[in-house]
Amino acid sequence: MPFSKKKTGVLLINLGTPEATDYFSIRRYLKEFLSDHRIVNLPPILWKTILHLMILPRRPFITGRNYQRIWDEAKDGSPLRYYTRRQAELLAHRLADKEIQVEWAMRYGTPSVAEKIDSLQKKHCHKILILPLYPQYSATTHASALDAVYKHLLTLTNQPAITVVPAFAKSDLYLSALTSHLQKELTKLSFSPEKILLSFHGIPKKMAEKDYLYPQDCLFTAQKLREKMQLSEEEMPLTYQSRFGGAEWLQPYTVDTVKNLAHHGIKNLAIMAPGFFSDCLETLDELGREIKEIFLKEGGENFAVIPCLNDSEEAVNLLGEIICPSEETF
């Protein structure tokens, strides 16, 4: 396809979400997600047997109920889809004077990475900046998103030039955005938190031995955020959530930490999830419902989850500042 006017495109990529909360929509999503070798690193024959015989027949019922609790038809159903789309729209408006085309995609589900690369090419973009929306690098997220990009490029005769924006956990732009956002959100609370928990998505400990950049990035983010907030490690501890299965994962676990804090007399707790750029099932339902219920049951009194950056001014400015230097040096 000839380019009549060469342009630059930006593709924001987030993890993914089902199209609806019914059994078959959830099953399709889980099948794609759990078939990624970056997510489950077991012998293929063994894992396919477990996946198709034990997980996919039953898990969609549980996961579907979880999604139903956070689903909002007025906002395109899935919060993750809504906020990722909003980020792309607001970023496009911010970059309008540069004639940069902005699209968004999901690694799993729709709209797909392949679909949106094709869309940018149809808009005459001969250069595409890929921005995975994962601040901390992990093979399970950042690398998997790039797998989808490169897989589609293999099918193209006329490939666009690709630049990948690296994970930005150590960027002062990101850390400053988190700090500003956290400070604003704390003023909205009706109570003063005794501790602010920083909860990151966990990964199996065995996987982390190879995927060692991820825990390093999480520790760095926590350390720098404490410095900017002038809080100690005790006042702002780091934990890992979303453990699945019986294997040992990165620790300390969020659920155990919350129980222990309540047992030791902490009555007022706030949780922030810096590794999630947009609110999703893990922040709204796991933290906002499951962890909250545990804290209150164990003796806590006030609990709040700090919203993710979402479509805030801090989020859009951060994306714009990350993209512009990359676009200029393309």
Rank of each mutant, 00 (worst) to 15 (best):
I291W: 06
I266D: 10
F276I: 08
D97G: 05
L51F: 07
V40P: 13
R94G: 05
R107E: 04
R65G: 09
V102T: 09
K267Q: 12
R81T: 13
F200W: 02
M54Q: 05
R38E: 00
K5V: 12
E103Y: 04
A208M: 01
T283F: 14
E328Q: 12
A20T: 14
P274R: 06
M1A: 15
K48P: 11
P43C: 14
Q159S: 15
F168H: 03
P135M: 04
H152V: 03
A177Q: 05
F24D: 15
N41H: 05
G245I: 00
Y212H: 12
G202C: 06
Y214I: 03
G64N: 08
I100S: 05
L42F: 10
K210T: 04
M272N: 13
A148N: 02
A92Q: 11
K259E: 15
S326D: 07
Y108T: 07
T140N: 06
T179R: 11
L198T: 11
Y150T: 01
H152D: 12
S138T: 10
K297N: 07
E235D: 15
H126L: 15
H37G: 07
W249E: 00
A177N: 02
R81D: 14
Y108G: 13
P43T: 14
L296R: 01
E327P: 02
K210I: 01
F191A: 08
L156N: 14
G320V: 07
P204K: 00
C324T: 04
I196M: 15
K188S: 12
L281K: 02
Q101E: 14
E327H: 04
H93E: 12
K188L: 14
